[in-house]
Design a protein around this nucleic acid. Structure first.
Length: 604
RNA sequence: GCCCUCGUAGCUCAGUGGAUUAGAGCGUUUGCUUGCGGAGCAAUAGGUCGGCGGUUCGAGUCCGUCCGAGGGCGCCA
């Protein structure tokens, strides 16, 4: 915002150093650690260290010498427009802005940009974010929720930072797990179908558990039990064979049951306000991926060991000319000619690059699949895709339960919908106590917004590479560093504006030339940081950066709210300026929450 | 055996080279009843940043090594 002043001063420093024969190191500007006044600073430690290496100067300690230079420079700069003062402190040169100018600039920018405050300049790259890859014929659990929330927030950040963004979902709709559910349905539950989208999805998950129990080898089986189990397994394998051969009946059964799962997935995405641009299905990648195997063999990238009774493999390290083991060797086609996960990922990447013309592709996938994805990217590179260099795996730690890892097979999972229902229930009970004035009809909607706010924020407030042990009481806490805490700051800002009867449309000119309190200054400081936080979070692929910022902003607002009573401000001009500051804070909180996929209720 | 991630306050986590005392939340102890809704504010106690060595003017942050935890490693996804 103040690059002109910065450049001017930089010139003056360079001139001074030339005149005094000082070998100035590169000037790195940074904000002054905030203590009530805005400004930017640079240090002279590097310059002094360089001088010392050249054998110049006597043996004065570095910090002391840096301070000497800073003091001399400060004395030389003189007055600069928009700059209130310049000082030398501990080897740093601090340059302060005029407080009232800075404050007005920040607030005005928010109020004119509104929803777009913080949006980055349009960039030419097209980015695809792939997330939400649950298996069908199961139900959506909180592990899937972490994946989906991370992916969606990343997509929002990248988009708001200025990139053209495509959201892609990739459900796993084939494999033995899927067939297992179809088998038990066909055998014991044919014709049944629970009412309700979630009920149907959850029912399929129950069938999977039941089927697994029937098909798993048990200890101390009687011969009859063994025979029964083997009979079931043969039936299941026969069904898989028929599916693979395109048997009309089995394919139809597959379509119908798959749709039950997808309906539930679409409903959950709707609840999370996720709008997918592209749907890839694992089943659709199967056939194209076989052609890719042929191509890779023809190009000499893959080795066909089938004639020797083996599979089709890619010796990745060898082909890349690496001597140390890194990507190893992997199979891309089984000896029986069927494809693997890796094979399908190659086909999917080809579609992303050739049909969607993406320049950059982000995979939001469990970090345990890191090697797998690195292998896939390496093969894409061998294959010759320039975008392979721009494939990025955003890994995240897995979500487990206090009693151990989740297991769909054993039915040991916590479903997203269960947690959501519990969240709404808990918020409603708080509302009944604290928000008796809100009409009951409205409370349900607010409860959903707050409940999801708590859940979503709990997933975002931990860095993505950390594992989470899911504790529902922590996830649904409403106190302290939580989603509702941030939403409450928004509600309070809204409440002030409502009482004052001002809307964002009537923008009166405000000036901040009165003596600002510490709390006003800190609030302005937080607001001003939003645009750079957007860029940082998007460039580093780190939703946590935005989650932390949103909390800090809300925290600063709560302190301001408590310390400065806007409505009781006597001086009209000051009151007007404060109302506009509240409006700017409200807008910034709303923008930050939107990026975090959390809604901003007007009351709560 | 090789590779990846992690080790910071009692607990859960921020902080990826720069400014006297390393920051939050929960939990602890204690204040805030006439005020824009207390899902809040203010204060309090609590840390050899896993150990050792190195690079640097400067290291929780970079490098090496050791210890500890979790994860991955050619026909699962």
């Amino acid at each position: 915002m103040f690059t002109k002043e910065q450049q001017l001063i930089e010139e003056k420093i360079k001139l001074f150093c030339q005149a005094n024969d000082i070998a100035l190191a590169e000037l790195k500007w940074q904000p002054i650690p905030f203590a009530g006044e805005w400004g930017f600073a640079t240090s002279f430690f590097q310059t002094v260290a360089n001088e010392a290496k050249l054998g110049k100067g006597n043996k004065v300690p570095v910090p002391q010498k840096a301070q000497e230079i800073a003091t001399q420079v400060a004395g030389q700069i003189g007055s600069v427009d928009g700059i209130s003062r310049i000082e030398a402190v501990k080897g740093y040169l601090n340059i302060y802005f005029k407080t009232s100018d800075y404050a007005k600039k920040v607030v005005d920018e928010v109020l004119t940009s509104k929803n777009n405050f913080g949006r980055g300049e349009k960039k030419s790259e097209r980015v695809m974010v792939e997330y939400a890859q649950p298996n069908t014929h199961h139900s959506f659990h909180i592990g899937h929720a972490r994946n989906t929330i991370l992916g969606e927030v990343l997509a929002r950040l990248v988009e708001f930072a200025g990139y053209e963004t495509i959201r892609a979902s990739y459900p796993g709709d084939l494999g033995l797990g899927v067939i297992t559910v179809m088998w038990i349905y066909e055998k014991f539950y044919k014709g049944q179908e629970p009412e309700g989208v979630h009920e149907r999805g959850q029912w399929l998950a129950k069938l999977y558990v039941e089927a697994t129990a029937l098909l798993e080898k048990k200890e101390n089986e009687t011969p009859e039990e063994t025979a029964k189990r083997e009979e079931y397994d043969a039936e299941r394998r026969e069904m898989y064979r028929k599916w693979d051969a395109g048997d009309e009946y089995v394919r139809n059964l597959w379509h119908v049951t798959r749709e039950w799962s997808l309906e539930e997935l679409r409903e959950i995405l709707r609840m999370l306000d996720v709008k997918m641009d592209v749907w890839f299905y694992e089943s659709e990648a199967d056939e194209p991926s076989k052609l890719i195997v042929e191509e890779l063999i023809a190009k000499g990238i893959a080795d066909d060991e089938r004639p020797q009774g083996g599979a089709v493999i890619v010796k990745i390290d060898e082909k890349l000319g690496l001597t140390k083991e890194k990507y190893r060797t992997n199979v891309i086609l089984r000896r029986d000619g069927t494809t693997l996960y890796l094979t399908k990922d190659l086909a999917l990447a080809k579609i992303k690059f050739e049909q969607h013309h993406v320049d950059r592709s982000i995979y939001v996938v469990d970090s345990r699949q890191s090697l797998h994805l690195q292998q896939a990217f390496a093969i894409l590179k061998l294959w010759g895709f320039p975008q392979a260099e721009k494939c990025y795996h955003l890994g995240y730690g897995f979500v487990s339960l206090p009693e151990g890892a989740m297991s769909a097979r054993r039915g040991r999972v916590v479903l997203f919908k269960e947690v959501y229902d519990e969240a709404v229930k808990r918020v409603l009970s708080v509302e009944a106590e604290k928000s008796a004035d809100i009409p009951v009809a409205e409370r349900e909607k607010i409860a959903s917004q707050i409940g999801l706010g708590a859940l979503v924020y709990s997933m975002l407030s931990v860095d993505n590479n950390k594992d989470i042990v899911f504790d529902i009481n922590e996830a649904l806490s409403f106190d302290g560093r939580t989603g509702p805490y941030i939403q409450n700051a928004y509600v309070r800002a809204n409440s002030i504006l409502k009482k004052a009867g001002v809307t964002s449309n009537e923008l009166r000119d405000a000036s901040y030339d009165y003596e600002l309190t510490k709390h006003e200054i800190e609030l302005i400081e937080q607001i001003s940081q939003f645009p750079q936080k957007v860029q940082q979070a998007a460039e580093e692929y780190r939703p946590l950066v935005m989650a932390s910022y949103a909390y800090d902003l809300a925290n600063t607002f709560h302190s301001f709210y408590h310390a400065v009573n806007v409505m009781q401000t006597e001086d009209e001009k000051t009151k007007n300026a404060r109302l506009q500051l509240v409006m700017a804070a409200k807008q910034t909180i709303e923008n930050a929450l939107r990026l975090l996929d959390i809604q901003s209720p007007d009351v709560m």
